[in-house]
Write a protein that binds this DNA or RNA. Sequence first.
DNA 1: ATCCTTGCAAATGATTTGCAAGAGT
DNA 2: ACTCTTGCAAATCATTTGCAAGGAT
Lengths: 133, 133
Amino acid sequence: MNNFEVMLREHNLKATKQRIGILSIMHMRGHINIEELYERVKKSYPSISLATLYKNIRLMLENKLLTEVSVNNSKTLYEITKEDHAHMHCEKCNEVMDIDFCFEDMYKNLGNEDGFLLKNTQVTLMGICKNCQ
Amino acid sequence: MNNFEVMLREHNLKATKQRIGILSIMHMRGHINIEELYERVKKSYPSISLATLYKNIRLMLENKLLTEVSVNNSKTLYEITKEDHAHMHCEKCNEVMDIDFCFEDMYKNLGNEDGFLLKNTQVTLMGICKNCQ
DNA sequence: ATCCTTGCAAATGATTTGCAAGAGT
DNA sequence: ACTCTTGCAAATCATTTGCAAGGAT
């Protein structure tokens, strides 16, 4: 029983080969969009269908096992949920990288939030990465 | 010659009725998605087509007259480009509100950016707004 | 007069659905 | 054995394209 099986069970999901495949690709790759995920998962499970991929992504998002990362001007990415962090998004190669970030410090700099019940924060730095410059 | 005509000319775009219509809805509405924009613009210009809307949004994004606002789990929004600010996104009603935010202060709290050429930043607080609680 | 923009219809791309067969517990 | 998941095909929704006619400068 590997890590991903445990993760799935902890989130009340059956541990199917397809799901374990999805999670292991995501774990290796970091942030990934549906299209690339499909190409890669097919290498281990050639019979997997796009519908299965979409259904599972949706399910794992609802269970908070995955987190959606919306970036401007390119496809939605998904990552395995982890500690708070910020993202750098390269507008040329579309790569997304994690950076350490303390949300507590940021909250001190906020303006008027007027009764808003805060659940989560997304911080994305947009620009050009080292390789693309 | 109204404000929107000036804005368009300053960005080297011809001032058509359709474009002025798009901008005035956006100015009133704040953040808006394509579907809602279409419904509203049709009220003043019933003949406008979705294709025209998409073409113009794309064009104005390229000219930085508009800014894309990607939010998790709901349609991409667009707003007229303005000074740096952060967004609050209500996960229930999907409304997006602006809040004051000083990016300079935030940059002090950042981790390793390793040669990244920063162009822009997006900060989104996700949660439940006052009305929806 | 020229070039850009519009609206239409069709093409393409992304995501969801229903259902019968198969897999996980 | 039971229930949930898969894969397929079709349906739906979102976005883009090509082109002829119309509009802005």
